[in-house]
C-alpha cells in the first residue's frame, strides 16, 4: 500500500498558543485512520492545516506526493482531499437535492463552464446518495430545517457527491441519535471498501473509533502522544492518563 497523506513535523502557533507541535503522521491509501485526543488537543487545527484553511508555521504536508501546505482551500479540495466540519456546514436555504448538486465536482472548471446547465443525471446520483445516508424521504426539505444529526448525514452525502480520494471527517457521529450510530459505522466502512475512499476520522466516541479504525493517532496538548492499533491505544497508559487524568 502506498502513502496517500504524509504530515511531516508540522508546527502551528496561534500567538503564544502552541496548537500543533511537531506533528507527523502518515495515512496509507485505502485505510481508515482514527485521530483522537482530549478537547483542545489540536485535532481540528491539524485538519485545518491539512486542507489549507490557515498556513502552517513549519513542516510540510504531502497529499499523493503533492505539497499542499501552500495551496488555497479549493485547490486542495479539487485534488480530492475533502473535509467535513464539526459544526455542520450546509446550504440552509436550499433543499437537500440542491445541496447535493452544488457539491458535485464539475468536470472542467473554466470561465466558459460557469454558465453550464446542471446535467440531468446528477439528480439521480444525488438521490441515490441521499438514499445511502437515509435522507431520501427528506430530499425536498430545506437543509436548514433538518435536525443537527440529519445535517451531519447530509454533509457526509455531499462529501461523497464530490467523489474525493480521501475524506477527513470531523466527529461524524457527534450529535447523532445513538440508534443511528451503528448505521453510520456501517456506512463509513462501505464508503471505505466500496467507494475506495481513504478516511481520517476525528472521533470522541471510543466505541465508534475502535470498531472503525485500523490505526489510531492520539494527540494531547498539541503534541503526538501515541500511535498504534486500536488494541495498543486502548491499553496505552499515556492515552488513558491524558483522557482521565493521571491516577
Amino acid at each position: 500500500m502506498s502513502t496517500i497523506l504524509e504530515v511531516n513535523q508540522v508546527y502551528k502557533y496561534f500567538g503564544g498558543v502552541k496548537a500543533n507541535e511537531d506533528i507527523s503522521l502518515t495515512v496509507e491509501q485505502g485505510s481508515i485512520v482514527g485521530l483522537i485526543g482530549p478537547n483542545g488537543s489540536g485535532k481540528t487545527t491539524l485538519f485545518n492545516s491539512i486542507v489549507g484553511t490557515h498556513p502552517i508555521d513549519k513542516g510540510n504536508i504531502k497529499f499523493n506526493d503533492i505539497e499542499v501546505s501552500q495551496l488555497p482551500v479549493p485547490t486542495v479540495a479539487k485534488l480530492g482531499l475533502l473535509r467535513t466540519f464539526q459544526q455542520t456546514r450546509i446550504y440552509g436555504k436550499l433543499n437537500c437535492i440542491q445541496n447535493m448538486l452544488i457539491s458535485s465536482k464539475s468536470e472542467k472548471d473554466t470561465i466558459f463552464n460557469i454558465f453550464s446547465k446542471i446535467p440531468e443525471d446528477l439528480t439521480t446520483k444525488a438521490e441515490n446518495l441521499l438514499q445511502f445516508v437515509g435522507l431520501h424521504q427528506k430530499r425536498k426539505l430545506r437543509a436548514g430545517d433538518l435536525s443537527f444529526g440529519q445535517q451531519k448525514l447530509l454533509e457526509l452525502a455531499m462529501a461523497l457527491m464530490n467523489e474525493p480520494k480521501m475524506l477527513l471527517l470531523d466527529e461524524p457521529t457527534a450529535g447523532i441519535n445513538p440508534t443511528l450510530i451503528n448505521g453510520i459505522i456501517d456506512r463509513l466502512i462501505k464508503v471505505n471498501k466500496e467507494f475506495g475512499i481513504t478516511l481520517l476520522v476525528i472521533e470522541h466516541n471510543m466505541r465508534v473509533i475502535m470498531s472503525l479504525a485500523q490505526r489510531i493517532f492520539c494527540l494531547a496538548h498539541g503534541q503526538m502522544l501515541a500511535e498504534g492499533t486500536p488494541e495498543q491505544i486502548k491499553n496505552d497508559k499515556r492515552v488513558i492518563d491524558a483522557y482521565l487524568g493521571v491516577q
Binding site: V51, T53, V73, P74, A77, K78, L82, R83, F85, R89, I90, Y91, I102, S103, K105, D109, M158, A159, N162
Partner: peptide
C-alpha cells in the same frame, strides 16, 4: 463550505 468543497 463552498470553498471547502472545491469551488473557487
Amino acid at each position: 463550505k463552498a470553498e471547502a468543497m472545491g469551488i473557487y
